[in-house]
Computed example of a mutant assay.
Amino acid sequence: MRVLVVTAVAAERDAVCAAAGPYTAERLPGGYALHRPVPPVDHSPGPAPVALDALAAGVGPAAAAAATATALTAAALTGEPCDLVVSAGIGGGFAPGAPLGSVVVADAIVAADLGAETPEGFTPVTELGFGTVAHHPDPALVRAVAAAAGALAGPVLTVSTVTGSAGRAAQLAARHPGALAEAMEGFGVAEAAAAHGVPVLEIRTVSNAVGPRDRAAWRIGPALTALTAVFGALPGALRATTSLGAAPAPQPAPSARRTP
């Protein structure tokens, strides 16, 4: 089973690679460096091993979508298509649902600020008659990975501007009830995966609270360590799960609604 793990920055990619190493770097079109595990000789019976390819795509949904699409296309052209794409990294957690140090597996990957401002408030792009604002990973896969990682399951919001105030945090929480985390790449990764018909997950380890930017309170090191632990547990969860198949059709986010 071949899994493409897409992170924003090299530190997140290296945390993923630390779960399985050693890795070699393979150059892709566009200058991307795909880190692929050196495959061990495995003669044991049972399911095929899980290979975690890791790619640092850059920050934001556009960079994430471009890099993911490039990697998926390259994999298909070499006759080794990916079975799953995972958007992964550290992120902000919405209090009190996802405190510092927690792990979140997205049951909805939501474009939280894709739409228009109107006199009545924010209108998601779906209400304007375009596109989609959410991807919903396979529920059985979400449950299996969350159980293996000791993680919470809930919506993860993709934003192009990181939240830096209590007011915006409250707006997002009201617009998307139950949201657990905020990051910048998941929806872009999911869009590319859907275009290629590949299932997708998003996994975030919480390094800071969504709201006012208090850098002294951030816990980036522990969040990266937690990311390594998650990807140490992921292969076992995937081998035990038989629900990998065609990517589900995108659905509107239940929480995407207008707010004053």
Rank of each mutant, 00 (worst) to 15 (best):
M1Y: 12
V5Q: 08
A8C: 10
A19E: 02
R27N: 05
Y32E: 15
P37Q: 14
A48Q: 14
A48V: 13
A48G: 13
V50S: 01
V50N: 02
D53P: 01
A56I: 05
G58Q: 12
G60D: 11
A64C: 01
A69I: 01
A71D: 11
T73G: 08
A74D: 14
C82W: 04
V86L: 02
S87Y: 02
A88G: 02
G89C: 01
G91Y: 02
P96F: 11
S102K: 00
S102A: 09
A106K: 05
V110F: 08
D113Q: 03
E117Q: 08
T132P: 00
V133E: 12
L141T: 07
R143Y: 01
A144D: 12
V145I: 14
V145T: 11
A151K: 06
A151D: 13
V159R: 04
A169R: 08
A170V: 05
R175N: 05
G186N: 06
A194C: 14
V198D: 08
D214V: 14
R215Q: 07
G221A: 15
P222L: 09
T225E: 14
A226W: 00
T228V: 07
T228K: 00
A229R: 11
V230T: 00
G236Y: 08
R239S: 15
R239G: 08
G245C: 13
G245Q: 13
A246I: 07
A247F: 05
P248A: 14
P248L: 11
A249H: 11
P250Y: 07
T259G: 06
T259A: 07
T259Q: 05
